[in-house]
Design a protein around this nucleic acid. Structure first.
Lengths: 228, 228
DNA sequence: CGATACGTTGATTGACTTCAACTAAGGTGG
DNA sequence: CCACCTTAGTTGAAGTCAATCAACGTATCG
């Protein structure tokens, strides 16, 4: 029974040497800045160097020979990139926003194992989503996941949370094993049900996070909501 | 472009201290023997102890609150159990055959990281399967995967490979995000197409492994096969 | 301005699910 | 040894959720 809790991106467990962000631009020296929709590394090429995402959103994806694409994971601030991709990358990594990367020469065992374990856990949860959840459940899950990774720890006066949804509808579709149209329709339904709000497609506000979590977990149908 | 290669279970990279199997029953002392359909550990309970599968097949699964079940991975000989399952297990582990386990007190970093990486790679490939493959492609992929993990390195006179398919149709369905009926229908179609053969539902022979691999990768439709 | 990409909405189709009936194999107890 | 039950597997018919096909609106950008 997934209990709903949102962790702001700033609260995520950053290793100590990254926390200097507030005081100064300590890692500005060797940090990598990438524009949206650029490739970090490519499926099939030599093993990628490891780096840590400081800011922005990166999509890990695999493609079948005929072009069908599956986004495996959405990687946000604090997480490692270039781990668990095999000898020759079995994944491509693409930025979905402006992204700041910090190359990490070598990670200590503790950090690496923790990061790998997080990859496994997320991949497992995603497999359950892809194998067993309905389209609205998938979209609700996605929104909550991305909110968790990308909310700014800003003014949290009300229980409404607003955040920037980096992936397009098409990218969400590739992540959730759906099509653009289905994703769009689910957003519309969630909006009409009063669970989320958006004026622009990428600025999303969670109006009823708990109800959203219920849907994501399969405990409630999208239609059984009393609009507030 | 997945090239088809089958690795017999015996050839898989076992750590040196397990290879004594041929010479004697060195690990017979503390080995754990479990009957089919028994639980190794349960979703939601305390962190499971780690062990290595010496023989048999274990299913890692997650369940949604309403009972929908997704099998995350099928674990065969040589692989570690109880890694990447989170603080409180987010997975259950169930035996699908007679299983021999060897408890491992602590694994060295090298082994653990390699095992975790394998978990990640397999989970990623499975996500692509669940998100983007058709039912026949999924079943073909599953058969090849299980063949790779469970073929006995026996008489390989011809290119036909015979192996014991431990999971039932229902368990395969839970693994592949399908229903029993769909899995059964796909088996029938593959059989009629001359790609596999089975008299009993769990003794399967691969007649045309390469064609099966083509289907699994989405390079060929199930119907475009010349029956030999 | 056209041109392109993204998003939304509607109509139709189709792949897989659901529901249902039936067969075969294994176990139990009279 | 056979009636009885249960479970797994197969097959057919009907139903449904999401995909496909199609049209349109809007924003961005040379």
């Amino acid at each position: 029974m997934l209990q709903f809790t949102l962790k702001a991106a700033g609260e995520r467990a950053l290793p100590p040497h990254l926390l200097s962000d507030k005081t100064g631009r300590r890692h500005g020296a060797n940090a990598l800045h990438l524009p949206p929709r650029s490739t970090v590394f490519l499926q099939g090429y030599g093993r990628a160097p490891q780096s840590r995402v400081l800011d922005g959103c990166v999509a890990l994806s695999q493609s079948l020979p005929d072009g069908r694409r599956q986004i495996i994971d959405m990687v946000g601030p604090g997480r490692l990139l270039g781990i668990g991709v095999g000898e020759h990358n079995r994944c491509s990594a693409d930025t979905l926003s402006y992204v700041t990367l910090e190359p990490v020469g070598e990670v200590d065992h503790r950090d690496l194992e923790q990061a790998l374990e997080e990859m496994v856990l997320r991949a497992q949860a995603h497999a359950t989503l892809l194998g067993r959840k309905t389209a609205p459940e998938r979209v609700a899950s996605a929104i909550l996941d991305l909110a968790g990774q990308f909310v700014r720890p800003s003014r949290s006066k009300r229980e409404t949370v607003c955040f920037n949804l980096h992936p397009t509808r098409g990218e969400l579709a590739d992540w959730l094993g759906l099509t653009v149209e289905t994703v769009s329709r689910c957003f519309t339904r969630l909006k009409r049900a009063g669970l989320i709000e958006f004026r622009h497609p990428e600025i999303v506000t969670l109006l009823q996070p708990q109800a959203l979590a219920d849907i994501a977990a399969g405990n409630r149908a999208i239609d059984n909501i009393n609009p507030v």
